[in-house]
Computed example of a mutant assay.
Amino acid sequence: MGLTYAELTLTNLFTNQRVQVNALVDTGATFMCVTEEVALQLGFDITEVRQQTVTLADGHQRKVPKIAPIEIAFANRNYVTEAVVLGNEPLLGILPLEAMDLVVDPRQQALIVNPQHPNYPVALAK
């Protein structure tokens, strides 16, 4: 099984600055993660934002900048959220995946809208 990437449009909702990114889809991650370069392209000053404590894959905890509000857009879906500034490539975690009702198709190594709800996202509320 290989890695899955998706083309996303990220928008800073304060300034309407947009950036297109090719993000790694990671169902083991929680948040949307962006690089420092992407945060700056979106117009955020990462020295003036809140911090989020995250646990890295190796078990270490670290405080990282958290930018908000951003909109994530993919296909006919969008989600307003926050993102942590971390790593060397954008990463799409499980919170935005669930909120936008997206699924990973492992055969095609592709991110797709949920085929059970092709026209709009449906969230599980139970």
Rank of each mutant, 00 (worst) to 15 (best):
L3P: 02
T4C: 13
T4Q: 07
Y5D: 11
Y5W: 10
L8N: 04
T9Q: 12
T9L: 06
T11A: 08
N12D: 07
L13Q: 14
F14E: 15
Q17R: 14
V19Q: 14
Q20L: 09
V21K: 06
V21R: 02
V25L: 06
D26T: 06
D26S: 06
T27H: 03
T27W: 05
T27V: 01
G28I: 00
G28P: 04
A29C: 07
T30A: 08
T30C: 05
V34G: 06
V34H: 04
T35R: 09
E36W: 09
E36T: 14
E37L: 10
V38W: 05
V38G: 04
L40K: 14
L42H: 06
G43A: 02
G43P: 00
F44E: 00
D45R: 11
I46E: 05
V49A: 09
R50V: 04
Q51K: 14
Q52L: 02
A57Q: 10
A57C: 11
D58E: 13
H60W: 05
H60P: 01
R62N: 10
K63W: 00
V64G: 05
V64D: 11
P65S: 01
K66C: 09
K66E: 08
A73Q: 12
F74H: 05
A75Y: 08
N76V: 06
N78M: 12
N78H: 13
T81K: 03
E82Q: 13
E82L: 06
E82I: 10
E82W: 09
E82K: 09
A83N: 04
V84A: 01
L86E: 03
L86G: 00
L86I: 02
G87T: 15
G87W: 11
N88S: 12
E89S: 13
E89Y: 05
L92I: 01
I94D: 11
I94T: 13
I94A: 15
P96H: 08
L97V: 11
E98F: 07
A99F: 00
A99R: 12
M100C: 09
L102A: 02
P106L: 14
R107F: 15
Q109G: 09
A110C: 07
L111Y: 04
V113L: 02
P115T: 10
P118Q: 08
P121Q: 08
P121K: 02
A123K: 14
A125W: 10
K126N: 15
K126E: 13
